[in-house]
Each structure stands twice: as C-alpha cells, then as structure tokens.
C-alpha cells in the first residue's frame, strides 16, 4: 500500500458504527466491567415496570447489607459481646432489647451479617470456581473427559446435601471454616452444567478456532479466550449460589451445627428459640434475624435474576436488530 494511501486512511478515523448498533452497544456495555448494580440500573431505566423497580430495590438492599457487614461499628451502638441486664425490652438504649446473657440484640444483628454473608460468598466462590473449571474442561476437551466429568456431576447432583452436612457437622467440630468448603463442594453441579454448554458454544467461535489453528496451548485458550466470555453466565450463577449457601447456613445454624463464638443470623435464631425467646414471646429477639435473612437473600436473588434476564434481553434485542 502506498504511503499516501496509508496516510489517507489514518486520517479518517475508524470507529465503526454499523447497523448492528444494539449488538455493539451490548458488547461495549459488557466489556467494561462495571458493578452489577450499574448494569441493572440500566435495565430498570429502560423498562420502567414492576421488574425494574424490584431490581432497583434489590440493589439498594444489597448495598445496605454489604455496608452493614463491612462497617458494623458505624451502625451498631455496642460491641456484640458487651453485657447488660438480660431479657430487656426494646428501649432507647437498646434498640431491640437484650438477650439471655445481656448482649444488645441490635448490635448482635449487625455483626451477625458479617458471618452470614462471609459464609454465603465464600461458599459461592468455591462452588463457582469448581463448577467453572470442570465445566470449561468438559466443554473444551469433549470426548471421554466430558463424559467422565459430567457423569461425576450427575453423581454429586443426587447427594442429599443438608442431611450430609448434618452428619458431617456432627462428626467434625462445627466451624464456618468447615461449613464453607462443604457447602461449596456440594453445590457446583448446576454451574458446571451451564458452563459446559456455554463453552461448547464458544468453542465453535471463530476466535477460538483460529487460536487453536495458530497453535496456542489449550490452557491459554481456556483462560484467556473462553473464561472471560463466560462472565455473563457465571456472575448470575454466583449470586444465586450465594443466596442458596446463605439459606443452608441459616438452617444449619438453627439446628445448632455452628460455631457459637461466631454468631450468624441463623445462630441468633437458634439461640432465641432454645433460650427462652419464644416462650417469653420476645418478638424483638427472634423476628429481626429472620427478616434480615429473608431480605438479604431476596436482594441477592433479585440481582442474580436481573443479571440473568439481562443476558436474555440482549439475545432478544440482537434478534430484533436483525
């Protein structure tokens, strides 16, 4: 090419906006990683329906709980183990009264969010990582490995989870550091399945094929070409896994299979139940943790669903733009 022609071309700025504008838009918006809330805000902005409102509410609640877990000292008036007169009713000093050993219930609630959410997120991280790795390997290599991994997934799928965890919890010392891996190791199957099917699809994409043809290693292709493109699938899965791990944690804690030194919302419920909260009809003791668990899980699930529908929305939009 002559230098003059090259000059002409460099002088014309070359960003394209083609008819596939909405497709491009999607690419751009999904490229720059943003806080999921921002994406959701966009959806809710576009469709000002009930769903949009719900999404926005979910994000708001989630941010609130996150703040509670990260900076409990801002919200809680006392330390969680500070002791006052037991069984006090709500008052200005003790917003939600005190429990059987005289701890301030509101402070306990605020500090409890930390444990509940840590367990939820850590277990979800473990399960998403395992699911993603197995799913990518199965989808990318196909053949015997695929059969083997997916067979194994089916086996894990039929293990009854809660009973198994109860048995494990009875034998091992109850602690969240046991709970996290156990919950994580038992809930990765659906992530693995979804990842596998998406990988099968991405494997046929031109850039993966040409990378294979150029002689890039499988590891390189899986980590840089396939994994980053799974983000649309993995993020909602991660959020939903967090919600389900939190439910499991709460139910196990309620059954008394948790570390008493690390009080989560579930543990608080359990204490309220076994130490006279229900008998004395102290609703300010047993309802707040229940409400917190419910709201927190709803908010996370809403974000997860929002991210999922967002993916689908784009598929639909792409078809429309054709």
């Amino acid at each position: 090419m002559s230098p003059e022609a090259a000059h002409i071309e460099s002088s014309c700025i070359t960003e394209a906006c083609t008819e596939e504008y909405s497709e491009k838009k999607r690419e751009i918006s999904s490229l720059n990683f943003k806080f999921p809330g921002e994406l959701l805000f966009k959806i809710s902005g576009r469709r000002k329906g009930l769903k949009g409102q719900l999404n926005r509410g979910g994000i708001f609640l989630f941010v609130f709980f996150l703040f509670m877990a990260l900076f409990p000292s801002f919200l809680a008036p006392y330390a969680p183990n500070e002791r006052f007169t037991p069984y006090k009713e709500p008052s200005w000093d003790h917003f939600l009264g005190t429990n059987d050993i005289g701890n301030d219930i509101f402070s306990e609630l605020v500090y409890g969010s930390r444990i509940s959410m840590t367990v939820g997120f850590a277990a979800a991280l473990v399960s998403t990582l395992i699911g993603a790795i197995l799913g990518i390997c199965a989808g990318y290599f196909r053949g015997a490995l695929d059969e083997l991994l997916m067979g194994f997934t089916d086996v894990v799928l039929i293990i009854p989870k809660i009973p198994l965890i109860i048995v494990l919890g009875a034998y091992l010392q109850p602690s969240i550091w046991i709970l996290i891996p156990v919950l994580g190791l038992l809930s990765w199957e659906s992530t693995a399945r979804v990842t596998r099917s998406k990988t099968l699809q991405l494997r046929e994409a031109g850039y993966v094929k040409s990378a294979r043809c150029m002689g890039f290693s499988s590891w390189h292709i899986m980590s840089t070409d396939i994994f980053p493109n799974l983000y649309n699938v993995l993020l909602p899965k991660f959020m939903l896994a967090t919600a389900s791990a939190m439910i499991s944690e709460a139910s196990l804690s309620f059954l008394g299979l948790s570390d008493i030194s690390m009080k989560s919302w579930g543990t608080m419920l359990s204490f309220a139940f076994f130490r006279g909260g229900f008998i004395r009809d102290m609703w300010w003791w047993y309802t707040p943790p229940g409400i917190c668990i419910t709201l927190c899980i709803i908010s996370i699930a809403l974000i997860g669903f929002g991210l999922e529908t967002q993916g689908k929305e784009h598929v639909r939009e792409g078809a429309d733009a054709m």
Binding site: A5, C12, I13, E15, A16, C17
Partner: peptide, 11 residues
C-alpha cells in the same frame, strides 16, 4: 482506498 468515517466523529 480507506474506510468509512466514524459516525461519532464525522469530517
């Protein structure tokens, strides 16, 4: 020779 201009930055 060359390409169409960018629609966000027209000559």
């Amino acid at each position: 020779p060359g390409f169409s201009p960018s629609l966000s930055n027209l000559p």
